[in-house]
Simulated scan of single mutants.
Amino acid sequence: MKATIIGLFLIAIATQWSWAQHAATEREIINLSKEKWQWMSDKKVDTLNALFHEKAVFVHMGGSMTKEQELGVIKSGGIHYKQADIHEVSVNLIGNVAILLNKITLLAVVGGNEVTNPFMVTEVYLKEGVTWKLGSMSFTRLLTPSDR
């Protein structure tokens, strides 16, 4: 009986610790994503270069880009991510992979034209050692009542 109680106690402690670790990792990914939006707005290409995985892919409404292409477009101002207003965020953890979904309104300058679009942005982060790297970022434009 005593061994059963001790066993149940240890299981409860391990479950709480695991849940706390999970919640802390979710917060870490959410904060990293928020920082990434600011770095993109500020055109901090060197900081973004360190965040983006070497094989990262970026999917936009007009096509896909490699890491080098995305950094080049940010640096040149071909796309200036001026402001991302985040409305909803969720994180799903699968092993060393974090999938973050952001529902945002993005104010950007694209090809010299200022545009505002509602997006669901999917960001996939991969943990390499103790560092999270962005492996994929995809923009899906959301329909608004005026689109229907």
Rank of each mutant, 00 (worst) to 15 (best):
L93F: 05
I99M: 10
Q83N: 14
I99A: 07
I79Y: 15
H87P: 02
L100C: 03
L101V: 04
V109W: 06
S76V: 08
K103G: 01
K103C: 01
L100E: 10
L93A: 01
N92L: 15
E88C: 08
A98M: 09
L107F: 07
D85N: 12
K103N: 07
A98V: 03
N102F: 00
G78T: 07
H87T: 00
V89K: 09
G95E: 11
L100R: 00
L101P: 00
G77Q: 15
K75H: 14
G77C: 13
K75M: 14
A84G: 00
I104W: 01
L106D: 03
D85C: 01
S76R: 13
V109R: 06
K103E: 07
I99Y: 05
L107Y: 10
L107I: 11
S76T: 10
L93I: 08
V89C: 10
A108P: 03
L101I: 00
G77D: 12
T105L: 06
H80Q: 15
V89E: 14
V91S: 05
N96E: 15
S90P: 03
T105K: 09
N92H: 14
V97H: 13
Y81M: 12
E88F: 11
E88V: 10
L100M: 04
E88Q: 13
H87F: 09
I94H: 15
D85A: 09
N102S: 00
K75E: 15
V109N: 11
E88Y: 10
D85S: 07
N96K: 12
L100N: 06
G78Q: 10
A108M: 08
H80I: 14
Y81T: 08
V91M: 08
